[in-house]
Design a protein around this nucleic acid. Structure first.
Ligand code: SF4
Ligand code: SF4
Lengths: 142, 142
DNA sequence: ATATTAAAGACTTATATTATCTGTAATTGA
DNA sequence: TCAATTACAGATAATATAAGTCTTTAATAT
């Protein structure tokens, strides 16, 4: 059981987007280049984040992506939920779920993780980025 | 990201083994039948649990499996760790991990889940099984 | 108009999970 | 000793999911 690479890419991308000056956008090409991955693949992930309401996009010349919420309000959980989906880590395929105690235990444990992830904000990561990286990103903004 | 079916099978199997009278063993055939799955596949999972020290096996006629620790000491985490392995949910493939703050956040969140799973014991599930199920298992002991 | 950008869908490839098949070794009991 | 029973190991196959590519379309600014 592992988080997908897509989650990794999404988290890093969000950190970059948060580092952008307010209102600026950056294209998927630059974002992919910084993470050394294919733009088309990252594009899918960005579309997911956009549909999830975390970022917004503008097509066309000088278009790109920017965050669509207050930068200090975006939690790790927000990103992970959007990319990985909402379903539970443990899901039994049987159909007599009512009152299942095994599921209850698993769901409760998972909730502890989620609570923690909901209280951790990406801006904390961005705030600790070094000056050079920040300037690098700003330089790539549209 | 999901827990594997193997984890589900392992948890149920452990509940059954804990329900057995102390010292009794039960074969993989019966355990698989109760969960409606292939004995050979379950066998692999049981071997893993045995190597992990949670259960012990005796081959040969009237052999089978039994728990190898105090029944009230076996936690959900014990089982999950044995089946799913020890690696972290989030693992970045880059090689500059030192002091990575993203990883720190993820690992800490995961630890909250693990702490909870380590405090939940399978015997609680067994204790709440109905009489009929318990007797069914006892009847299949060797 | 044209260049640039995101979005969408079909498709392929890679990887992990799930499952089966076959054979071997250990143990019991007749 | 012999036969039945059981766990164990390894190869293989089947399936599901994730990861990544390719191509086309649509929107936008200059
Ligand atoms: S008891 Fe719960 S986990 Fe077990 S088979 Fe039923 S629903 Fe699934
Ligand atoms: S900062 Fe952390 S998560 Fe990001 S690439 Fe480096 S090691 Fe991986």
């Amino acid at each position: 059981m592992k988080y997908s690479k897509a989650t990794n890419y999404a988290l890093h991308t969000m950190v970059y987007l948060i580092a952008l000056p307010k209102g600026n956008t950056i294209g998927v090409h630059s974002l992919a280049e910084m993470q050394d991955l294919s733009p088309t693949y990252l594009s899918k992930i960005l579309t997911k984040l956009a549909k999830g309401g975390l970022i917004e996009s503008t097509p066309g010349v000088r278009g790109g992506y920017k965050v669509s919420k207050a930068k200090d309000s975006i939690s790790f959980l927000d990103v992970i939920k959007t990319v990985e989906g909402e379903s539970n880590l443990f899901n039994c395929s049987m159909d007599h779920h009512e009152g299942c105690m095994i599921e209850n235990v698993m769901i409760e444990a998972e909730q502890n993780m989620k609570d923690d992830l909901a209280a951790k904000f990406l801006i904390e990561i961005t705030n600790k980025m070094d000056e050079q990286s920040i300037n690098n990103i700003k330089g790539k903004a549209n």
